[in-house]
Write a protein that binds this DNA or RNA. Structure first.
Lengths: 218, 218
DNA sequence: TAGATTGTTAATCGATTAACAATC
DNA sequence: TAGATTGTTAATCGATTAACAATC
């Protein structure tokens, strides 16, 4: 997974966690934090935290640490959270509902602007005040409105076709919840949430632990 | 993230993907596959695939490759999918609904046996034929029934308290959807699905790509 | 000034890739 | 047997950790 600029994906995937803890600190009116304290919260090492942040600039101050508010703002900028993201949700089933109501969109500039479904029963209903539109009007909609992100919440069948439509309409990013690896051109960003893989990993770890405990009891 | 036995988490997290592709191959009546072909499907290198599998045993045959059905069975065993997992869902909101109806449970031995919610309006309703019980009866339920996995689908507030209850009742694993890092003892396995982190990573990548394209156009 | 903590270089560790002998 | 492909060792690459000079 090569990155365009020099920053590795390992670093990038830690940024949201920094952002989350900085937000919480700010909520509790904490003004400054050292890499050592952040280490305790995040369980990344202090050294790693300083390395990570210095990929993007020197946000700290020797002898003091980091200003929580400033650092949060900076990481927010790095994550692209200063601009609004318009999101459409494809598939108005259970997962589509959950994503449409996703609390994490709040206060981060994400906004669900439309939902799509192929079921004639769903079309015309409202979720969180947003009307469910027919999947047949997907391309028409994107071409007439700005859309940044498409969240695919459909069953695995036909997922690639939907992705292809999104791509043809120049969507920028796809948040994919279907258990499929989508084939997308280089300039489209795709982020998978493969719940089955997460669940199976959990299952693996449970059984590993059980085995280890049996061994330990001998 | 140290593992008990020698297998690294990097390897473990690739296993479900192997399992998924082997299942698909089997559905299409493909009998054998080489590491080279699996590489094309998964986009892991053939060398990596052979290394990964050999952490658990020599499942292949020189000059032939791997038997799809056998390999699927073996990886299923490694993932612990040969035994049934009883799952309870805590939080009967949108995400709780989505998880209860999660298709990935099917054919993998996972079964949602109960749902819990604190809202008196939800309690007594049915989701997929499963009654929503009061959160107050959570411990009572677990002590009277076997439960393997607790899926936490509540808002972030109070998540740790729910985890503590699950732990006190000797649950084995927690599938956590709340944007919180739970504090759990060593013998409990926790798997987080942090959608906010996934979303923010997507946002980062979109903006990186945009920047790279601006640069390219100069 | 003395103490604290960053930014950054160097050392270590772990994961991935390459290569090839073994063997079906 | 010849060809294919694994299992496995060695080489490379990348990420994490340690150390410390710079400096607030």
């Amino acid at each position: 997974m090569a990155r365009d600029n020099g920053v590795s994906m390992a670093v990038v995937r830690r940024l949201p966690k920094y952002y989350r803890y900085l937000s919480e600190l700010l909520e509790h009116d904490v003004r400054r934090i050292s890499s050592k304290e952040l280490s305790r919260l995040t369980s990344f090492t202090a050294s790693q935290i300083r390395q990570d942040l210095n990929n993007f600039g020197g946000f700290g101050q020797q002898g003091y640490g980091y200003n929580v508010e400033d650092l949060k703002t900076e990481i927010g900028k790095i994550l692209g959270l200063q601009v609004e993201h318009k999101v459409i949700v494809i598939g108005a089933g259970n997962m589509g509902h959950a994503i449409t109501n996703f609390r994490g969109f709040e206060n981060s500039g994400f906004r669900v602007v439309a939902l799509f479904d192929k079921s004639t029963e769903m079309v015309g209903t409202f979720i969180r005040g947003i009307e469910v539109l027919s999947i047949d009007t997907l391309e028409e909609y994107i071409n007439e409105h700005r859309v940044d992100i498409g969240a695919i919440c459909t069953p695995r069948e036909g997922t690639q076709e939907i992705a292809d439509k999104l791509i043809s309409c120049n969507i920028k990013g796809i948040w994919n919840f279907a258990p499929v690896d989508l084939d997308v051109p280089e300039d489209i960003v795709i982020e998978n949430v493969h719940l089955n893989e997460s669940l199976f990993t959990l299952s693996y770890l449970i059984h590993e632990k059980k085995k280890a405990q049996r061994k330990g009891n001998k």
